[in-house]
Amino acid sequence: MKKGHNTRFSFIILLTAIILIGSHVPAKAHKVMIFAWVEGDTVFTESKFSGGKKAIHAPVEIFDKDGKKLLEGKTDNEGEFSFKIPKVTDLRIVLNAAMGHKAEWTVPESEIREAGAIVEKKSTAEPSGPIAVGLSKKEVQKIVEDSLDKKLRPIIRMITESRNTKPSLTEIIGGIGYIFGLMGVALYFKNRGKKR
């Protein structure tokens, strides 16, 4: 009798839990992330909570390879923050969102060098003069880069988003499964102790 009661009670809670899972559709994980990329001599960063909410007005700090702080700033209303590259080195970008949330992203030195090389090439190539009517080589390069940036932005965004994994149903159900599995293990050991 008592046992039946117990199962029924567990069952009700389990059902409630399942209903709650179903209702969590716009799942927002409790996690913050930052993503950075280099364009020319500037590093752009984007910060958000997983689920897509922007981390606005959150302090961002940039460290070099040895952990020395190079500069700091705050994300704007879009969760974005950009800065000129202060030094050619591995840049460690740390975001400190409120309430103990933290994320970081490292821009490797090679990426900065590559982006910087383009800028340098641009300036050395300039004296060679116009390559098309009324357009200097630099201008052409700039136009190409601008349109590339524009075209690539959505892709960069997509990559950010795909990194931004929110808990899937599989993981949730899996987690619950683990818990009940553990319960089974605990019951098994208790039961064995009892029989002895």
Binding site: L14, I21, A27, K53, H57, A58, I176, I179
Partner: peptide, 23 residues
């Protein structure tokens, strides 16, 4: 009972209340 409440706690963290810049 502990397992059921553990599962409840596990799932509860997925229920969000939007609040200011965070949730």
């Amino acid at each position: 009972e502990a397992a059921v409440l553990s599962a409840t706690f596990f799932v509860a963290s997925l229920i969000h209340v939007p609040m200011g810049p965070s949730s």
